[in-house]
C-alpha cells in the first residue's frame, strides 16, 4: 500500500483479513518489493507532492505502465487518470488510464454522501461512500466502466488496474478488493461473488 498519506490503514485491514501480506510503501526501496499496489484515498495534492519529493513518481509511473496491479481509490483514481481538469498546475497525473477527472467534483464535505450502486458482475448492490470525491468526466475506449452514478463512471478497470471514485475500504464490504485480487492473480480461488462482508471473507482467507 502506498502509505504517504491518507486512508491506507483501512485498506490494509481489509487485505489482511483476505490473507494478503501487506507492507507500507514510503520510498523506492519499498516500491520495488511489492507485487501489487493500493493507492488509497487522501489528499491528492499532498500525495502528488510527496511522491515527487520521494523520487517514487518516476518509478511508480514506469511500474504502472509496465503492468503492476493497482487498486486506486479516490485520490488514487486521480493519480491514475490522464487529465485533471481543475487540479493544481504542479499536480501529477500518471496517465495509466485514459480518463479525465474533476477533483472534488461532487462538492465540499457537506455534499459527501453514501448510496447503493449497481456494479457489473456483482449480484447485490455495493454500498459506496463518496467523500469529496472526484467526478470522472471522460473515459477512453479501452477503459471498462463497471459502475456509474448520475451517468458518471465511478468504478473503472483496465487490465490489472481498477479505480474507484468512492471508498470501498470504508463500508465493510470486501467484494471489490477480492475481485481485484483474483483478477490480478494475487489471491487465487477467490471470487468476488462468493460472499459479502468481512465475516465470510475472513473464513475464506484462512483456507487460502
Amino acid at each position: 500500500m502506498l502509505a504517504l498519506q491518507g486512508a491506507f490503514a483501512a485498506h490494509e485491514a481489509i487485505l489482511r483479513t483476505l490473507g494478503c501480506e501487506t507492507r507500507q510503501v514510503r520510498n523506492t526501496r519499498h516500491l520495488v518489493e511489492v507485487d501489487a499496489l493500493v493507492v488509497p484515498g487522501g489528499e491528492s495534492t499532498t500525495m502528488s507532492n510527496l511522491l515527487a519529493r520521494s523520487e517514487m513518481l518516476t518509478m511508480l509511473h514506469a511500474k504502472a505502465l509496465g503492468g503492476l496491479p493497482i487498486f486506486g481509490t479516490c485520490a488514487g483514481l486521480i493519480l491514475m487518470a490522464s487529465e485533471i481538469c481543475d487540479g493544481r498546475d504542479d499536480q501529477h497525473a500518471l496517465g495509466v488510464l485514459d480518463m479525465a477527472v474533476s477533483r472534488n467534483g461532487y462538492g465540499r464535505q457537506i455534499d459527501s454522501f453514501e448510496t447503493d450502486i449497481e456494479v457489473r458482475g456483482l449480484d447485490a448492490p455495493f454500498h459506496a461512500v463518496f467523500i469529496r470525491s472526484p467526478v470522472v468526466t471522460r473515459v477512453g475506449p479501452d477503459v471498462e466502466v463497471l459502475a456509474e452514478v448520475d451517468g458518471n463512471p465511478v468504478l473503472c478497470r483496465k487490465g490489472p488496474v481498477t479505480v474507484t471514485a468512492f471508498h470501498p475500504e470504508l463500508s465493510g464490504d470486501d467484494r471489490l478488493h477480492r475481485r481485484w485480487l483474483s483478477q490480478t492473480g494475487i489471491l487465487r480461488h477467490s471470487s468476488a461473488q462468493d460472499g459479502r462482508g468481512l465475516g465470510r471473507s475472513r473464513a475464506g482467507a484462512q483456507t487460502e
Binding site: 498519506q5 499532498t46 464535505q109 459527501s112 454522501f113 453514501e114 450502486i117 448492490p125 452514478v149 448520475d150
Partner: peptide, 26 residues
Amino acid sequence: MGQNNKRETGTTLVKRGLAEMLKGGV
C-alpha cells in the same frame, strides 16, 4: 444501471470518513 438509489449526506460514516482521508497528514 439503476441510479435512483437514495443518497444520504452527513452520516457518521461520511463524517468520520473525511478524517480517515486526512490520516498521515498535516
